[in-house]
Nucleic acid binder design. Structure first.
Lengths: 339, 339
DNA sequence: GTGAAAGCGCTAACAG
DNA sequence: CTGTTAGCGCTTTCAC
């Protein structure tokens, strides 16, 4: 692989000059020399060594992304947004899965640090119960690694998110307005703030409507299809069935619907089902899923922009809130026998 | 950030010794010195600069992954497999989306080259009509960048795949066995070999069964939900409707089913629908989707292993074929009025 | 306008 | 067992 030295020799100039030409430096270079260098670069198929450059400039043009599971539609859509924006600015993105394991997360963070990434985006999956994480974060901050958190405000960093509390409240209000009074909430992983937020919104709406909160109606979930399956089984085994199921994410809702249908339960006649996130599939399941539309792709794009701004020395807002939108589709309707 | 020099000073040894201790070099180091170095490393929160190391060792421990769209469940599952295996071996993965644009692909390849990645995995989305691509590939090979292609044999490189022809044939046979004679094939992007393979398998099965091939029954698709929607509209507008729809991937099948259902078409009574890939949703749609189970996660894992083997100087097989599996679910059944 | 020299942080000969 | 020297490929003072 040709180095800058090879180029210099061939163009009969110093490596310094080559560097100036190749980087469009503001330092003046005569047109004749510039052409000679460019010519040599073409002839030798010259490609700059990004590592060597990074060592000097102290900028790698690489960002790391921490996700719970990159094969989850929620995360993969966010990552796509990040990657698109990153590429547009000449950045590369390294992807790291944690499966929500704080230890794995730390290991990844350290590794990204070793590779001198310019910034790190936390796309979720962080937990709030891990204090050794803050040590790593401090090390990162000390070395001016830009940090951005998406949606979960677990990591103390600049944040881009939607108002999960308000969104969950709005969905619950929609259900209440239809006449539902017994609404089960299928939650997400307990340690996530997202889960807590959505539960809070649910409770707020109930309180505002004067419907007593029943802890028996808060069912566990894990943001997976399988956890929706579990929840549906629980529903089927319940004597005093709720008339609506509000799942804290779409996969859970879709998994639940699959089981309910097989059991002969009609949606929304027998039970309404609502989700959260609005993953692409939500429009293609049967019945189409009522859900909260979270701008996942944009979350990624804005997160990356925010990162870029930090790197450029700007002082962007610490918290950027993106709009969500209640999507009413076919999976919710009035209860057959309003209570 | 503490450098190896800082460590050397604090531990009262040479940088060389520090390096030897930290890398568990085979070169002997006295226990006393080793402890001193380790102690100093702990005190200074020392982290090695991976870039500097990479410059010397000529190994970055980074692999690049080229995908059409990382938010597509097919690709995202493969990527997950790659990442899992990569992490287990201390590798980082950079993800690059091409949207199947050969120019974007080339740009990415060059950039990955600049960053001295140890290897590149082509997870799909390559086209066979781009010869300037081969120039880049040659450059890569020249610099000993390990190359692995997944599923599409577009890129000339070591390959891990499933037998798409046989799988499509098997699915078509399943449909024929049910009594279908008019089976429409909804294809994928034309330039993909995967698309061509699946069409070929379809034709082979028809020929073997003595059913004449009707070009009118090969409909365009794009591996997206939306293209399934289009195909379903075409079905609805067709006078002499086929009794079965074989979509070249699951998203297409699911998109089609959504429209058909809304139009009051019963599946599989009025029309059977089959997919390809077996993405997670296939089990949760209604009716559950008959499809070809492609081991996407394993494709990623094996692809990464193959890459690692190449890097280790082993000579792994040029072509590794992974098993697929016909998954018969509820979306296919005998035609109401067998022709 | 151009170039020489220094050095980013690390590892790999080669000595001792 | 330990250290000295050199250098990966590049950018950046600083001098001319």
């Amino acid at each position: 692989m040709a180095s800058i030295m090879d180029l210099a020799r061939r163009a009969q100039v110093s490596p310094t000059t080559v560097s100036r030409v190749l980087n469009n430096s503001s330092h003046p270079v005569s047109e004749a020399v510039r052409q000679r260098v460019l010519q040599a670069a073409r002839e030798l198929d010259y490609r700059p060594n990004a590592l060597a450059r990074a060592m000097i400039t102290r900028r790698t043009q690489i960002v790391g992304v921490i996700v719970g599971d990159s094969s989850d539609p929620y995360f993969s859509t966010i990552v796509r947004g990040i990657e698109t924006e990153a590429r547009a600015h000449g950045y590369l993105v390294i992807i790291c899965n944690t499966d929500r394991d704080p230890l794995v997360e730390q290991t990844h963070l350290r590794l990204l640090h070793d590779y001198q990434v310019d910034g790190i985006i936390f796309a979720g999956g962080s937990r709030h119960d891990c204090n050794s994480l803050s040590t790593v974060l401090d090390e990162l901050r000390q070395d001016d690694v830009a940090l951005v958190a998406l949606n979960p405000h677990t990591v103390v960093a600049a944040e881009v998110r939607v108002d999960n509390v308000a969104a969950a409240r709005e969905m619950t209000e929609h259900l209440l307005a239809l006449g539902h009074r017994r609404i089960a909430l299928i939650g997400g992983p307990e340690e996530l703030t997202t889960t807590a937020d959505r539960l809070q919104g649910y409770r707020q709406a109930l309180a505002a409507a004067g419907v007593p909160f029943d802890p028996e109606l808060v069912w566990p979930g894990a943001f997976t299809f399988e956890s929706g399956v579990q929840a549906a089984r629980r529903y089927l085994a319940t004597a005093d069935r709720p008339t609506a199921l509000f799942a804290a994410n779409d996969q859970t809702a879709i998994g639940a619907m699959a089981v309910l249908r097989q059991a002969g339960i009609r949606i929304p006649e027998d039970v309404s089902v609502a989700g959260f996130d609005d993953i692409e599939q939500a429009r293609y399941v049967f019945p189409t899923l009522t859900t909260i539309s979270v701008p996942m792709h944009r979350l990624g794009v804005e997160g990356m922009r925010h990162l870029l701004d930090q790197l450029a020395g700007k002082e962007p807002p610490e918290l950027l809130c993106l709009p969500y939108c209640l999507q009413i589709r076919d999976s919710t309707g009035p209860p057959l026998a309003p209570s």
